[in-house]
Amino acid sequence: MWELFIHPSNLIFSVSLSLMVLLGVLECLLLIVGSSSQGFLDQFVPDQLIEAPHSEFDVHVDHDAFVQLLDWLYLGRIPMLVWLIIFLTIYALTGFILQSIFYSFSTHYFPLWIAAPACLILCMPLVRICSASMAKILPKDETTAIHSDELIGRTAIIILGEARLNYPAQARVKDQFGQSHYILVEPEIDIIFAQGQEVLLSERTSMGFRAQAIT
């Protein structure tokens, strides 16, 4: 077993397993002193993976292939530290198992330049399965924060002043969670929105929103 671990052909798998153990020990030590590496690691997750709604069958055409692959691997759906430990563990074990099987038939190991990329490909489905299982177990942070574009299509009411083209007035709108938002609204065309009038938000502007009159 030790020979398998220290053999040059298995160097990258030994490093992966050692790094996984090191991360676990480091996290335990940080937790003892009341800290964590989680926030530091999460900053390396692409913004698209955090902001985009995840779905098993969703294909985000605006993402590049690399981001789609990371999304498929559940990166961004579970804490980065947890995902990294899963990946390092599965990658190392896949490499050791593959090399052990090949050694039992041929009495030598795959060269590192063949084994490393081959195991990277082979381990990806297992990383996805384990990450998906972990995502179901770990508690999720619930939030009612929304992007302002999500208010488009909702009904707002003018609460202060009159809204004219290029001269917005303050309005109140409720989001899908029932929370009130106070925004600036102006009409799409040269009309006037009176105080107390309900309008339909149609698009964002640099100052707030444009809206249509509700007839």
Rank of each mutant, 00 (worst) to 15 (best):
E142W: 04
P139L: 10
H54I: 10
A156M: 04
I137A: 13
W83K: 01
E150R: 03
P125V: 08
A115S: 15
V127Q: 03
I32S: 11
G76Q: 01
G153A: 08
D47C: 04
F105S: 13
S104P: 04
M134H: 01
W72V: 08
K136P: 01
C123Q: 11
F87C: 07
D71V: 04
T143G: 11
S148Y: 05
S133D: 08
G76E: 00
I101F: 09
W83H: 10
M80Q: 03
T144H: 12
I121D: 04
S55T: 08
L23F: 15
V67L: 08
C123D: 07
V82C: 12
F105V: 13
I97N: 05
F44N: 12
A135T: 05
I137T: 14
L73S: 06
G39Y: 00
H60S: 09
L93Y: 05
L151R: 03
I101L: 14
F110Y: 14
L70T: 00
I90D: 01
S104V: 09
S133T: 11
P117L: 09
D47H: 03
L120M: 11
L31A: 10
F105G: 08
P117C: 08
R128K: 15
R77F: 03
L26E: 06
L81D: 03
A156S: 08
A156T: 06
I121F: 12
I78K: 02
L19P: 00
K140H: 14
D58G: 06
V25I: 15
S36G: 09
L151H: 07
